[in-house]
């Protein structure tokens, strides 16, 4: 059933922002990531709407954007752009307040991005591995090994603490 961009944004924007926070660990980056993705979604809405599941399609766009980080495409555009969006002050107090007891959160930031994305998709979005593989554009086996390596890393951190 076709929906408009407005309906999509109304119903999905908050969820996408949360997902982006889980990926980046940072509200500012999350905001830029979602903004960059949603601008492209809006400009190409017809193509997005034609996808079997627009929501999954957009999540894949956003995830790819995040994974492309290293190659610099969006970070360069977004972070090095001249004009910051002054209208978008972000509340960061929660981050400070919870920092102390959030070792898991800081360990996550040291994981390779793809592993972190796999963890977020399974343990935050609760997606089955087949869908995770679709979002990440890889085989299910690759997803499982990425998650297993990520969990092993985290477990090792636990041991040290």
């Amino acid at each position: 059933m076709p929906v408009t961009y407005e309906e999509f944004a109304d119903s999905r924007l908050t969820a996408l922002l949360r997902y982006a926070v889980m990926l980046t660990g940072d509200p500012h980056l999350a905001q830029d990531l979602v903004q960059e993705t949603m601008v492209r979604v809006q400009l190409n809405w017809r193509r997005v709407d034609r996808a079997d599941a627009p929501e999954r399609y957009v999540r894949r766009m956003l995830t790819n954007q995040y994974l492309d980080w290293q190659r610099g495409s969006w970070v360069r555009r977004v972070l090095l752009r001249a004009e910051p969006d002054e209208a978008l002050a972000v509340r960061v107090d929660h981050a400070e307040a919870t920092a102390d007891r959030d070792q898991v959160w800081s360990w996550l930031s040291r994981l390779p991005r793809r592993q972190r994305a796999a963890l977020v998709l399974r343990y935050y979005e609760d997606l089955p591995d087949a869908e995770i593989a679709e979002v990440l554009g890889c085989a299910v086996g690759t997803v499982r090994s990425a998650i297993s390596r990520a969990l092993a890393t985290l477990r090792a951190e636990f041991v040290e603490v």
């Binding site: 944004a9 924007l13 908050t14 922002l17 949360r18 982006a20 926070v21 889980m22 660990g25 509200p27 999350a30 905001q31 979602v34 903004q35 949603m38 601008v39 809006q42 969006d85 209208a87 978008l88 972000v90 509340r91 960061v92 929660h94 981050a95 919870t98 959030d102 898991v104 959160w105 996550l108 963890l119 977020v120 343990y123 935050y124 985290l154």
Partner: peptide, 24 residues
């Protein structure tokens, strides 16, 4: 622990309203 950490940080997500306008 992972699930709990994710859930705790949901509150970090910025407001959708202003972002919506910025996207437009």
């Amino acid at each position: 622990e992972l699930r709990a950490a994710f859930a705790r940080h949901e509150s970090l997500a910025p407001e959708a309203g202003p972002l919506r306008a910025a996207i437009d």
